[in-house]
């Protein structure tokens, strides 16, 4: 597998007007995404996941580090807006309604990126029809305006607009967060199918862990601008090592009251401010395993499996005595039992 996207030591600090302090949004992040692969960046608000997405596309300059697309550096001259990469990188937004021009017909919206590539009108119309069919939009809806569609349909338009140029990498920034659960399920199924057909690399930014488990091959858990744990989706969801990953996973409320949701790591309080980060581990103030070592210095990456890294001194302690976190598997099995049994 050749990497479509490689990110190394990415740092992004935002200045604050009139102050010497900066917002340390991203603090040394590294990962790669291959063809046909989905890497999920998960984390809570303020963890820096959206900022990483914007740096990857070159929408904002980075403070330090490297971002390479097929080995070539993304920078001021080569980015999602530049001529050489136009159409090869794409972005899907969280709010479908706000990301579509309300006065543009759906067909025009989907064809807009092709106009930027100077494709002839005839070819454009043909391509838009083909893409619309692919994402499940009717021919009639191409003549409609965004306000006439449901949120789920609007997001199909957002996805159609992204794949119309056959991009190699799509950054999906919370593409399902604004949707109702049933629409969310439809969009997720669509994204998975499209990836199989087109072999696109996805950088999937989300705080919705139940969705992430289903769509992603690999997962990077972010906390205060750092990837605290990274590994295959199967590993992260069944054997999370970092206390924050464990806490995050055990906070998910799946629709089954009988599932034992034993809180294995009780994270106290809230995320500290990214302006004033602690010296040692960023989780020290909330973590039940904290000691002097954690407060003194940031723990280095510890490799615990194939491609599985954890930034924690005590991940063995966090893991000890715990069986695999089978919450999601249990839920799946029970759901199949209840929903599979019903006569339709």
């Amino acid at each position: 597998m050749s990497a479509v996207l490689e990110v190394e030591g990415l740092v992004k600090h935002f200045p604050i007007a009139g102050q010497r302090a900066v917002v340390q949004a991203v603090n040394g992040v590294g990962f790669s995404v291959a063809r046909g692969e989905t890497l999920a960046l998960v984390g809570e608000s303020g963890s820096g996941k959206t900022t990483v997405g914007r740096c990857v596309l070159g929408l904002i300059p980075r403070t330090q580090g490297a971002v390479r697309f097929h080995g070539a550096m993304i920078d001021k001259r080569h980015n999602i807006r530049s001529r050489d990469l136009r159409g090869k990188l794409q972005l899907v937004f969280q709010e479908p309604a706000e990301s579509l021009d309300p006065r543009m017909r759906i067909g025009e919206t989907i064809g807009e990126p092709l106009r930027q590539l100077d494709m002839a009108q005839v070819d454009r119309v043909k391509r838009v029809r083909e893409v619309a069919r692919r994402v499940g939009l009717s021919e009639a809806s191409l003549e409609q305006f965004p306000a006439e569609l449901s949120a789920g349909q609007q997001q199909r338009v957002g996805i159609a607009r992204a794949i119309v140029t056959s991009p190699e990498l799509i950054v999906l920034d919370e593409p399902t967060s604004a949707l109702d659960p049933t629409a969310r399920a439809e969009i997720i199924d669509l994204l998975i199918r499209l990836q199989k057909e087109l072999d696109t690399a996805y950088l999937f930014i989300s705080h919705d862990l139940s969705t992430v488990r289903y769509v992603s091959h690999r997962v990077a858990v972010m906390y205060l601008g750092m990837i605290v744990e990274q590994g295959s989706a199967a590993e992260i969801f069944s054997h999370p090592r970092h206390p924050y990953s464990i806490g995050l996973l055990s906070s998910v409320l799946l629709p089954n009251p009988k599932l034992k949701r034993e809180v294995r790591v009780d994270l106290k309080g809230e995320i500290p401010s990214p302006i004033d980060l602690p010296n040692g581990c960023y989780l020290a103030g909330r973590c039940p395993f904290v000691d002097e070592q954690c407060r003194a210095a940031m723990p280095p990456a510890d490799q615990v499996g194939d491609g599985h890294f954890v930034h924690c001194y005590h991940h063995r302690k966090a893991l000890s005595g715990q069986v695999a976190l089978d919450y999601f598997d249990d839920f799946q099995a029970k759901a199949e039992q209840v929903l599979g049994a019903g006569r339709r």
Binding site: S150, Q153, T182, A183, Q332, L339
Partner: peptide, 23 residues
């Protein structure tokens, strides 16, 4: 049942219970 199937992330269940909403 469809609401619950949306969380189950199982293609077979989805096919059995899910019908998209057009508007």
């Amino acid at each position: 049942v469809m609401l619950l199937a949306a969380f189950a992330h199982n293609p077979k269940l989805r096919e059995k219970w899910h019908k998209p909403l057009a508007s």
